[in-house]
Every structure is written in C-alpha cells, then in structure tokens.
C-alpha cells in the first residue's frame, strides 16, 4: 500500500504542509547566506548555517511537465487526469517544486511558461484531504 498522506507534524517536511494549509508557499532559506535550500535538511547546503521557513511569492515557470490521462497508481485516480509538473521558483529557478498545473488547456502548456501558485485540496484514495500548492498559468 502506497503511503501518500502528508505528515504535518514531521520535523523536516511538516512545515511545508502546515504553510500550505495556511495557503502559503514556504520552503527553507538560509539564515546566513539567504539562499533557498531544497529539499529540507538540517543545515544550509551552501554555507552550513541554520535554516528558517521562508514564505515565497508563489510565482515560477514550468520547468517540465507530463499530462497523465490515466493514473499510473490507483490512488491517484482521485485527481486524474492531471498535469504533473516541475516548477522552477521565481526566487531561485534552480529550486524545482514537484507539483501540478491546474486550470489550464493542456494543449497550450509549454516549458518556461509563467505560473502562479493556487491552493487546492487533494485527496488521493486512502488519504485525508490536504491543501496542496498547485500552479496555474498566469
């Protein structure tokens, strides 16, 4: 059985989902060098200093995507069809958020198109609903 439920209490990744529940996109930034650090870890991968959860603009571009008509996993049927995406964030395009593109004409999707965050409830089979940062064309 696939475990898909985001754990809001997990020390490393819980803050991401707690921010999302408040309709904010937050990822770790360095207290010292100010760079974004993704995925979450104990200390800055660039300078070793401490990290804090930084609220971002929610703007980015479409780095890569796939239109999934039929889910490859049964649990994903709840939100299929869907557009799975890697989103390059405005504050640092080297940081890619795994997410989805919604509210779009899939035939108009193109890499590098600008996107902005929109919070939507996802509820894969077997999961309690969770508010997730997804993206729409802007």
């Amino acid at each position: 059985m696939l475990e898909l439920q985001p754990d809001l209490e997990h020390p490393l990744t819980g803050p991401f989902w707690r921010a999302s529940a408040q309709q904010q996109l937050a990822i770790p930034g360095c207290e010292q060098c100010d760079r974004l650090v993704w995925y979450p870890r104990e200390a800055c991968s660039h300078c070793g200093a401490g990290l804090y959860w930084r609220t971002l603009s929610g703007r980015g571009t479409l780095a890569a995507f796939s239109v999934v008509k039929r889910p490859l996993f049964p649990a994903f049927a709840a939100f299929s069809p869907y557009v799975c995406a890697l989103v390059a964030l405005e504050e640092d395009p080297a940081v890619r958020l795994v997410s989805q593109v919604v509210d779009c004409d899939t035939s108009q999707l193109a890499c590098d198109m600008p996107l902005s965050v929109v919070f939507r409830e996802l509820a894969p089979d077997g999961c309690k609903p969770y508010l997730a940062p997804l993206f729409k064309p802007c």
Partner: peptide, 28 residues
C-alpha cells in the same frame, strides 16, 4: 522519506512520470 512527503502527494510517481517530465524538457 522526502519523496514520500514532497513528491508522491502530488502524483509524481512512479518512474515513468520522472522521465516523462524530463522528456518534455529535452523536447523543449
């Protein structure tokens, strides 16, 4: 852990999706 918490909840799984997205970038 990280994949389970930050990738799977968006449906970026399993591997065909990893490389479908990469392929879109290569094509672009």
């Amino acid at each position: 852990l990280i994949k389970a918490q930050l990738e799977l909840p968006f449906g970026w799984f399993p591997q065909p999706l990893y490389f479908a997205t990469f392929a879109s970038r290569h094509m672009h």
